[in-house]
Design a protein around this nucleic acid. Structure first.
Length: 263
DNA sequence: AGTACCACCTGACGGC
DNA sequence: TGCCGTCAGGTGGTAC
């Protein structure tokens, strides 16, 4: 799940629930999801500090505790957050639990343990160290996007998913953007005209923005969207074509066999 | 610079 | 019912 719109939704959820609350202690169920420190290290670092601020860059959630302590949270393929009071309501796969001063708990969920939490000193330095490109939604404008892609070698789908180029787009939303822009995923970037890239940019913005508006719930998005019909053999929501599945750079891609022709 | 493939984990699903 | 292969919305390493 967790691509940019999902992580933005988690950020808003965290702001609406645990923000301003004080940390009492942190419990870590599986140390594998915590980098560079331990349960005790996290508790020492965060105890009695308030969750003061949240940021998002691409698929990373950055959380500020007290005046200057930050955690970088990444969700991998199966991450989520939960906020609850009663231990009976603790979610499955809660790998780290932040006990709060109001007797509630904020859980970091990671079923497949492919995500991680790590303490960082400074968000901007972290983004730099991780070699993340500008945030796909807030980090650049259309002209900068066109410049960024100019001269690129690869295919458009893998380019959109390249986090060091632009941060936040994953497999599902790259498919959605290309489907709505009528571009075949294996189209080479260099074969695209500037106006094609500008159009793609507008689609990219509208897909991400509308998905966030619906709190990244696919069933709330228009029925014509690919995310509502990611299934081989489904009817296309845009033309009279059929949805097919292909593999590009190792990832399963869904596309319409009719309005996304390879050029 | 790009791409393909594997690994990291766990669970769901289809076929037999 | 149970076993097995395959696949899943992310990322990092390695080899080409």
């Amino acid at each position: 799940m967790p691509e940019l719109p999902d992580v933005e939704t988690y950020r808003q959820f965290l702001d609406a629930t645990a923000r301003r609350k004080q940390i009492r202690r942190v419990r870590v169920a599986d140390s594998q999801v915590v980098d560079d420190t331990s349960q005790r290290g996290l508790t020492n670092r965060l105890k009695n500090r308030r969750i003061n601020q949240t940021r998002r860059h691409g698929k990373h959630l950055l959380v500020k505790f007290g005046a200057d302590r930050w955690l970088a949270v990444h969700f991998g393929m199966t991450g989520d957050l939960a906020y609850y009071k009663d231990e009976d309501n603790a979610p499955d796969y809660a790998q780290a639990i932040f006990d709060l001063s109001n007797d509630y708990h904020l859980a970091y969920i990671s079923q497949r343990k492919l995500g991680k939490i790590q303490p960082i000193d400074n968000p901007d330095e972290f983004i730099e160290q991780e070699d993340l490109g500008p945030d796909a939604l807030a980090g650049l404008d259309g002209a900068e996007f066109v410049d960024l892609l100019a001269g690129r070698q690869g295919t458009i789908k893998s380019t959109l998913m390249n986090q060091s180029l632009i941060a936040g787009i994953g497999n599902v939303y790259s498919d959605e953007i290309l489907y709505r822009a009528r571009v075949h995923p294996a189209t080479t970037v260099k074969s695209m005209e500037n106006r094609d890239l500008k159009k793609l940019w507008r689609r990219l913005q509208s897909v991400l923005t509308k998905t966030i508006e619906k709190q990244a719930q696919p069933n709330q998005l228009p029925a014509s969207w690919l995310v509502r019909r990611r299934e081989e053999g489904a009817s296309c929501g845009i033309c009279d074509g059929t949805i097919i599945k292909r593999k590009f750079s190792g990832r399963g891609a869904y596309l319409c066999d009719t309005h996304q022709k390879r050029k």
